[in-house]
């Protein structure tokens, strides 16, 4: 009996080690393939030029249009996401702190929205475009992606705001500060690392998502000049070029996937570093 107990524990311990190792291996496998394939196809031309004539038959040019388009789109929607999300996240923790049921319901709503897949936002964005008389454009893409990333931003920022000690609010009130001052100076400053993480998280989701921009942002070989131009995006550049039968074009999809992965990695690293950097001045 004693032996069986120990045997069982040993068996599961090894199984768990194996499983954990396999997750790490799959992770390395994915990164390895993306880096290897992408590196082979990567050229300076890829990231410095727009597509030229015959690009989609394997001739010259690059995907600068998609890189810049994606950055515009993600920056635009992060900005609007911030405009909508920042006051709500702060309000949940300062203005309505006593209305627990309301805040609870709000969190519930945000969690539900957080789980809604981006394709649904894409379809809704498309319906909204028809209603507003917009055509597929940078603007329509920004609107759709904003709706998609707002819940992500708020929930991430809220998690950190909740950890700000109540005593700080009481101290600020006793010094005569009003709610806005408490929210935007005391709480915002205290939760700054979380704010940066949340912003970068939302930005990363915005830049990497394909399903929400498929209907709304369009696709073009040029860098958009105005907000009403259609725009190319990196995920869609990857998606479209991978389905091409021409090997040169397919290879570009690998390079584009590498570029997108690098952007995501940079975001992840910056998020970690800045968290450490801004943690210094926190009470």
């Amino acid at each position: 009996m004693q032996n069986r107990k120990i045997l069982e524990e040993k068996f599961f311990l090894w199984l768990m080690r194996l499983v954990t190792l396999s997750i790490i291996l799959v992770f390395l496998f994915i990164m390895g393939i993306i880096i290897k394939k992408g590196f082979h196809a990567m050229t300076w031309e890829m990231i410095s030029q727009e597509p030229k004539g015959g690009f989609y038959f394997g001739k010259g040019g690059g995907i600068l249009n998609a890189i810049v388009g994606s950055l515009y789109l993600a920056l635009g929607s992060t900005f609007f996401g911030l405009l909508l999300g920042l006051p709500v996240a702060l309000g949940m923790n300062v203005h309505w702190i006593t209305k627990t049921r309301f805040v609870g319901a709000l969190r519930f709503l945000l969690d539900a929205l957080w789980g809604v897949p981006s394709i649904v936002f894409g379809a809704f964005g498309f319906a909204l475009m028809a209603y507003l008389g917009l055509r597929a454009s940078l603007l329509a893409g920004i609107i759709t992606v904003t709706l998609f990333i707002v819940p992500i931003f708020i929930r991430a920022f809220d998690e950190v705001l909740r950890t700000v000690p109540e005593g700080l609010m009481e101290a600020a009130y006793s010094l005569g500060a009003n709610k806005t001052q408490i929210a935007f100076t005391v709480f915002f400053r205290q939760a700054l690392p979380g704010f940066i993480t949340a912003i970068l998280l939302a930005f990363g989701r915005g830049i990497g998502d394909a399903a929400s921009v498929l209907f709304t942002a369009g696709y073009t070989d040029h860098i958009p000049q105005t907000i009403q131009d259609p725009t190319a995006t990196l995920p869609l550049a990857i998606f479209f070029q991978l389905s091409s039968p021409i090997p040169e074009v397919k290879a570009r999809a690998y390079a584009a996937a590498l570029i997108l992965t690098i952007i995501i990695l940079i975001i992840s690293v910056v998020s970690r570093l800045s968290t450490r950097r801004f943690k210094k001045n926190i009470l």
Binding site: F27, I30, I33, I207, L260, T261, L265, S268
Partner: peptide
């Protein structure tokens, strides 16, 4: 593992798709 989870969660779905097609 937290780092691995972080990066895995951040990788865009289209990149997973590329990996799926390749592997």
């Amino acid at each position: 593992m937290y780092f691995v989870i972080d990066v895995l969660a951040g990788i865009p779905s289209v990149v997973y798709g590329v990996w799926g097609v390749l592997v």
